[in-house]
C-alpha cells in the first residue's frame, strides 16, 4: 500500500476553504504532509486550527478545495463518492472523541458494522469480531449495549470497530478527549500496542501533550500550516 518513497500518506499543496455566507474561511493553506507506513503521528494544534478537517481529508470524509491527497498511491480526492465509500471501508479505521457507537446495537454488533460491507459469512464475521474485541480486552462485554459500558470501554469498542477490517490507516480524533486520565492512558497504551505490535499506521489528533508523547512523531497545525515545532 505504501508509495515507493515509503510514505503511506502523501498530502501536497492542499487548501481547504469553507464558505460562510459571503465570507470565505481558509482552514488549510498550501499544506504538505507525508506519513510513512508504520508511523504513529500526533497532530496537535489549538482549537479551530483545522486538525479535524485535515484528518477528514486523509480519511476521505471530506474533499480538499485544491491540492492532492494520496493514500498508498490512491488519489482519493479524484474518487467518486461511491468509490470513496468503498475505499474507506477497506483502508480506514476511525476512532472518535465521543466514541460514536450506535446505541441500539450491542458492542459486538457495533464492531461488526464495517464487516456488513464485506462478503464475509456470518460465522466469519463473528470470528473477526471476537478477535477485535480480544485485542482491546473487551470479550466479556460483547453482549452489552453502549449505555451499560464505561467511557473507556466504549472507546475500546470504538477501537475494535476501527480495527476489525484490518485497515491500512487508523485515524483517531481526540480519542482520549472524553476520558479520565486512567482510561485515557489505557486507550493510549492500546493504540501504542497496535502501532508497535501490529504495525498499524496511526494519525491521532490531540490537544493533550501527555497523549502526543506516546506518538513516534508530533506535528503542529496552526493557522492552516504544519510545522514540526510547537508554535509560540
Amino acid at each position: 500500500m505504501s508509495e515507493r518513497n515509503g510514505a503511506l500518506v502523501h498530502i501536497e499543496r492542499v487548501n481547504k476553504t469553507f464558505r460562510r455566507g459571503a465570507e470565505e474561511i481558509h482552514i488549510l493553506s498550501q499544506l504538505n504532509l507525508e506519513v510513512p507506513q508504520g508511523e504513529f503521528l500526533a497532530l496537535m494544534g489549538p482549537s479551530g486550527s483545522g486538525k479535524t478537517t485535515l484528518l477528514n481529508l486523509i480519511g476521505g470524509l471530506d474533499r480538499p478545495t485544491s491540492g492532492s491527497v494520496r493514500i498508498g498511491g490512491d488519489s482519493i480526492d479524484q474518487m467518486s463518492n461511491r468509490r470513496l465509500a468503498a475505499w474507506r471501508a477497506r483502508h480506514i479505521g476511525l476512532v472518535f472523541q465521543f466514541y460514536n457507537l450506535l446505541p441500539v446495537l450491542t458492542a459486538e454488533r457495533n464492531v461488526e458494522l464495517p464487516l456488513l460491507l464485506t462478503g464475509l459469512s456470518s460465522a466469519q464475521r463473528r470470528r473477526h469480531v471476537e478477535a477485535a474485541l480480544s485485542v482491546v480486552g473487551l470479550t466479556h462485554r460483547a453482549k452489552h449495549y453502549p449505555r451499560t459500558l464505561s467511557g473507556g470501554e466504549q472507546q475500546r469498542t470504538g477501537i475494535a470497530r476501527a480495527i476489525v477490517t484490518d485497515p491500512t490507516l487508523l485515524l483517531c480524533d481526540e480519542p482520549t478527549g472524553d476520558l479520565d486520565r486512567k482510561s485515557g492512558d489505557e486507550i493510549l497504551a492500546l493504540l501504542q500496542a497496535l502501532n508497535r505490535e501490529h504495525g498499524k499506521t496511526i494519525i491521532m489528533v490531540t490537544h493533550d501533550p501527555h497523549a502526543s508523547a506516546r506518538a513516534t512523531r508530533t506535528v503542529y497545525l496552526d493557522k492552516g500550516r504544519l510545522s514540526s515545532e510547537k508554535p509560540e
Binding site: G59, R82, A86, A89, R90, F96, N100, L113, P114, L117
Partner: peptide
C-alpha cells in the same frame, strides 16, 4: 444524523 455519519464513515455508501 451522527449515526448516519458513522455509517458513512465506516464505508456505507449513499445508496446503502
Amino acid at each position: 444524523t451522527a449515526e448516519i455519519g458513522v455509517l458513512k464513515a465506516v464505508g456505507f455508501g449513499n445508496g446503502r
